[in-house]
Amino acid sequence: MMSLPIPPEEVVALLRWYADMGVDTAISDEPVDRFAESAVPARPVAVAVRPAEAPRPAASPRLASPAAALLTATPDTVELAAREQARSARTLDELREILDRFEGCALKATASRLVFADGAPDADIMFIGEAPGRDEDIQGKPFVGRSGQLLDRMLAAIGLDRTRTYIANVVPWRPPGNRDPTPQETTICRPFIERQIELVDPKILVCLGARSAQALLGVTDGILKLRGRWLEHEIGGRRIQAMATLHPAYLLRQPVQKRLAWRDFRAIRAALEQP
């Protein structure tokens, strides 16, 4: 049998994605008149009668691979598997390897690569966005496009850079067309970012944008109401200072709001200097 050019589990994931998009019929190069087909009466089919055969012994059940099992599992089962796998990671490198093998999120099938993190794993401050975009999907690092360049300038304004910070996203795979991740995709990926925060163990957590704050801090307010307020994120028995601020992509569309982001970053700098 000819081997498939891509692994079977990726083929299944792609077919499921087609089904989710509403594709239920294969299309060929030649047009087909379905109305003409339905007008032609069906021909009777002769059925050959075969002699009775002795019953065959039942075949032993074939166990599905963990990846294939996740593709057909319920959302609750996938979330539980994500939590168990994330909890098993003892280091950031192990967590990255687990995410590379994880098949429970359909975004992995449409993204080019995993976008795990950038910066210093022992940093005192951790920035978390929502999901990678096109440039991040190409380079495999978070915040490297126009938004990332603005973030770098904002960090430089308070005396920081990527060698002194740690940057990641709630969802580590790019959604198709840069759409927002669905609530289910965010829920599945949340255990991994929570474990990532626990392993980095920062002094301060900064959520870039409302969706990141809503996913991690359990808030529902919009970003203009959330920003600039000190909150707490409890994880691993420890409380971490947390603040939501405006996403750099929003600031590119609304540059007048940079004054608000500047206030937030000054407060973050002051908090970092506290013992």
Rank of each mutant, 00 (worst) to 15 (best):
Met2Gln: 13
Ser3Val: 07
Glu10Met: 13
Val12His: 04
Ala19Asp: 11
Asp20Ser: 14
Asp24Cys: 05
Ser28Phe: 12
Glu30Tyr: 04
Glu37Gly: 12
Val45Glu: 14
Val45Asp: 09
Val45Gln: 15
Ala46Lys: 13
Ala48Leu: 12
Val49His: 10
Ala52Gly: 13
Ala59Cys: 09
Pro61Ile: 12
Pro61Leu: 11
Ala64Pro: 08
Ala64Arg: 15
Ala67Leu: 09
Ala68Glu: 11
Leu70Tyr: 05
Thr72Asn: 12
Pro75Glu: 11
Val78Asn: 02
Ser88Thr: 13
Ala89Tyr: 08
Ile98Ser: 11
Asp100Pro: 00
Glu103Met: 10
Cys105Tyr: 02
Ala106Trp: 02
Lys108Ile: 10
Ala109Glu: 06
Ala109Ile: 00
Ser112Arg: 15
Val115Gly: 02
Asp118Met: 11
Phe127Ala: 03
Ile128His: 04
Ile128Trp: 00
Glu130Trp: 00
Gly140Arg: 12
Pro142Phe: 05
Phe143Lys: 04
Val144Leu: 09
Gly145Ala: 08
Arg146Tyr: 12
Arg146Asn: 13
Gln149Cys: 03
Leu150Lys: 10
Leu150His: 07
Met154Tyr: 03
Leu155Cys: 04
Leu160Glu: 05
Asp161Gly: 14
Val171Trp: 01
Pro172Leu: 06
Arg179Trp: 00
Pro181Lys: 05
Pro183Ala: 08
Gln184Met: 14
Glu185Phe: 02
Glu185Arg: 13
Glu185Pro: 09
Pro191Lys: 07
Pro202Thr: 12
Ile204Phe: 03
Cys207Met: 13
Leu208Glu: 00
Val219Ala: 10
Ile223Arg: 00
Lys225Asp: 15
Arg229Thr: 09
Trp230Asp: 05
Gly237Leu: 12
Ile240Val: 12
Gln241Asn: 11
Pro248Cys: 05
Arg259Tyr: 07
Trp262Tyr: 12
Ala270Thr: 10
Ala271His: 06
Leu272Gln: 10
Gln274Val: 07
Pro275Met: 05
